[in-house]
């Protein structure tokens, strides 16, 4: 009855899910993938000192990118231009989209705007946003009376 060869596809789907979950937990525990509401999808990382935001923006030039920070709000906007192909031919498939984009993200901590660094490498944007000094946790020493 339960011969694995004839098990319904539900099983393989379950196995796939399980594999996926294991991998996710191994790679990025305890994070969980959420659907991106708009372009570009971002990953946000944090520690007590600050946060890092990464986004995949292949084909976007640094000059076409605009990054702004106000307190704990980060806005990434820009455009991706079409590289005009040579000669007059035709597209067999066109999956890579061009156009403008703008995304605003609420960060875990307010940011020290002067110390924000953005690097674009191989189509991957990485923004390092140090936590504002005033927001950092303070160690309180308890004096003996």
């Amino acid at each position: 009855m339960f011969d694995r060869l004839y098990t319904p596809s539900v099983w393989s789907e379950m196995e796939r899910l399980q594999r996926e979950m294991n991998r996710l937990f191994n790679a990025f525990s305890p994070g969980w993938m959420r659907p991106a509401p708009c372009f570009p999808a971002v990953n946000v990382w944090a520690n007590e000192e600050g946060q890092v935001v990464t986004a995949e923006l292949p084909g976007v030039k640094m000059d076409d990118l605009d990054i702004s920070v106000v307190n704990d709000t980060l806005t990434i906007s820009g455009k991706r231009e079409t590289a005009e192909p040579a000669g007059n031919g035709k597209y067999h498939r066109q999956e890579r989209e061009c156009g403008s984009f703008s995304r605003t993200i609420s960060l875990p901590y307010p940011v020290d705007a002067d110390k924000v660094e953005a690097v674009m490498e191989e189509g991957v944007l990485r923004i390092t946003l140090p936590r504002a000094e005033a927001d950092k946790p303070r160690k309180i020493t308890v004096k003996s009376a």
């Binding site: 995949e56 192909p85 040579a86 031919g89 035709k90 597209y91 890579r96 991957v124």
Partner: peptide, 21 residues
């Protein structure tokens, strides 16, 4: 994601592969 474009003498392929060099 990829684009494939064909002219009389060549086929052009462009693919988004962020993080690849």
């Amino acid at each position: 994601l990829a684009d494939i474009y064909e002219t009389d003498d060549s086929v052009y392929v462009a693919a988004d592969m962020p993080g690849v060099n």
